[in-house]
Amino acid sequence: MASIPVSTYVAGLAEPLREVGERLVEILDAGLVGREGVMWHGHPVWMDGKTPVAGFKAYSSYVTLMLWQGQRIEDPTGRLAAAGSAQMASTKIATVDDLEADTVLSWLHAVDALPAA
């Protein structure tokens, strides 16, 4: 069975989460140049080869933005929280008003600049 496109996943979200998902796709595409979002374990993830870098997953009232190496970067905002296993960090976003594009881009650039773990 073929995986659905990221755009189909986002289009299937109810508002206001659809708007959050659409904006996150734009930000992740801009911040992770040369990588494309793919569906991985049921949600959109931007990969570096076979290694996940960032992605998001929608829940009933928010979208979780995940950075697989997020615990390894500086976060002066305090919005990133340790999540899952390894070095993952995440933040919850309920509306686009909660989504600070410049902050997310700074996290993406910081993660992208990390030496291999």
Rank of each mutant, 00 (worst) to 15 (best):
M1A: 14
M1G: 12
A2C: 14
S3A: 15
I4H: 15
I4Y: 12
I4Q: 15
P5V: 09
S7D: 15
S7V: 14
T8G: 12
T8K: 12
T8H: 11
Y9R: 00
A11G: 07
G12V: 09
P16R: 03
E19W: 03
V20T: 03
G21R: 00
E22Q: 13
R23Q: 09
E26C: 10
I27L: 07
A30C: 10
G31S: 09
V33C: 14
G34I: 13
R35L: 11
E36K: 14
V38M: 02
V38E: 00
M39T: 02
W40M: 11
H41R: 14
G42E: 01
G42Y: 00
M47S: 03
D48M: 08
D48V: 10
G49Y: 03
G49H: 04
K50C: 13
K50G: 13
K50W: 13
T51A: 15
V53Y: 01
G55F: 00
G55L: 01
F56E: 00
F56V: 00
Y59I: 09
Y59C: 05
S60K: 13
S60R: 15
Y62E: 09
V63L: 06
V63I: 10
T64Q: 06
T64H: 04
T64C: 07
M66Y: 10
M66D: 13
L67A: 11
W68S: 01
Q69T: 10
G70D: 01
P76F: 06
A82Q: 12
G84H: 01
Q87I: 04
A89W: 00
T91R: 12
K92A: 13
I93G: 04
T95P: 05
V96A: 07
D97G: 08
D97T: 12
D98K: 05
D98W: 03
L99W: 02
L99H: 05
L99R: 03
L99D: 02
T103D: 10
T103E: 08
V104I: 12
S106Q: 08
A110E: 05
A110F: 04
D112A: 11
D112L: 14
A113Q: 10
L114I: 03
L114N: 07
P115M: 06
A116Y: 11
